[in-house]
């Protein structure tokens, strides 16, 4: 399904930013696949190579991140789960320090203590974590703080569709609704919680329908469509900033890779991923921008070059940086 042209009421600069950011995010993940595989050949060992540990990549899920982050400012909060790179990039997290963190370097966002699931960039109010649904109440707290401070800041929390079945989802949504907080929950439905399909785990067809249970707004975005995500998010952010309370947005999105790198993916059909790749939202947006005369081939290539250069520089920075000294493991437990 192509992206429809009638939806292109988005300012050209925003559209270009969304495209460039999706390209940056995708290229970041593609580069990470290679970096992660270093030292893990011919025998895969999760603890080997320059980027060890679990690695959850967001390839295919870029529309969710850019569609809403296009409406956010630096002061707005974003919390994210174990699959955080596309959100971090769209929120403007320092790419060099984020990459360095994944390489376990002292120049990383957490001086090498956190790793890819635990990125914290307070400068742009971004955080993520490895426990399902745990970021939702943190966003509730950020939204509460905005309200207490009298600011029109909003808090956006990204979760997978599996997180909607965790207790924290329900508790947080009810609280945010009762307190009418500027919270937006973006549920990325990539169809699987690791191996368990949404069909087998979730009683409702889409999680935006749960909004009714909290008396708040809900919206659904089909087909991994970044333009529709932009449109729906615009309303949700407006609603939040104006004090009209929370929104749940569910977006149908696609996980092109395994739950983690090294996932044998025996729970899904071999044909599924090639099929998903044909629906690539980046390819579709590129085509649309050219067909609609929004950008020329040359302009698009220039956006792509800029995005990739930034990623290459971030990886170079990460690789060239030093490891922390072993005894630095004992620092930062408490603030001084």
């Amino acid at each position: 399904m192509a992206l429809t042209s009638e939806k292109v009421t988005i300012p050209v600069e925003k559209l270009k930013w969304m495209y460039e950011t999706m390209v940056k995010s995708r290229y970041f993940e593609d580069t990470m696949v290679e970096a992660y595989n270093e030292g893990k050949q011919p025998v895969f060992n999760i603890g080997a190579g320059p980027v060890p540990g679990e690695m959850h990549l967001s390839t295919g899920q870029e529309p969710a991140a850019v569609g809403i982050c296009a409406h956010l400012q630096k002061e707005d909060t974003v919390t994210s789960p174990h699959r955080p790179h596309h959100h971090a990039i769209a929120k403007g997290v320092d790419l060099k320090r984020m990459t360095a963190e994944m390489f376990g370097k002292v120049t990383g966002l957490g001086k090498g203590k956190g790793g890819h699931m635990h990125l914290f960039d307070p400068d742009v109010k971004f955080s993520c974590g490895g426990i399902i649904a745990a970021g939702i109440p943190h966003a509730v707290g950020a939204a509460l703080a905005a309200k207490k401070k009298g600011k029109d800041w909003v808090a956006v929390t990204f979760v997978g569709e599996g997180a909607a079945n965790a207790g924290g989802f329900h508790e947080s949504l009810n609280l945010a609704a009762v307190w009418k907080l500027p919270l937006i929950v973006v549920v990325e439905d990539n169809a699987y919680g690791i191996s368990v399909s949404k069909r087998d785990s979730t009683a409702v067809e889409s999680n935006d329908k749960r909004a009714a249970a909290y008396g708040i707004a809900g919206a659904y975005v089909a087909n991994n469509d970044p333009l529709e995500m932009y449109r729906v998010s615009e309303e949700a952010v407006k609603r939040a900033r104006s004090g009209a309370g929370p929104t749940i947005i569910e977006i149908e999105t696609h996980r092109h890779l395994g739950h983690f790198q090294g996932d044998p993916e025996l729970y899904r059909d071999m044909e599924e991923v090639p099929g998903l790749r044909k629906l690539d939202p980046i390819m579709k947006l590129r085509e649309l921008m050219i067909v609609e005369g929004i950008a020329t081939e040359e302009e698009i290539e220039s956006l792509e070059t800029t995005a990739k250069k930034e990623v290459d520089e971030a990886y170079a920075f990460a690789r060239e940086s030093e490891y922390p000294k072993p005894e630095e493991a004992l620092e930062d437990v408490f603030s001084k």
């Binding site: 922390p324 072993p326 005894e327 493991a329 004992l330 437990v333």
Partner: peptide, 16 residues
């Protein structure tokens, strides 16, 4: 493990 959370980076984790 000295009383710190488990760090990510290899030299840090191996240290604790």
């Amino acid at each position: 493990i000295p009383d710190v959370p488990i760090p990510y980076s290899r030299p840090l984790e191996q240290f604790v």
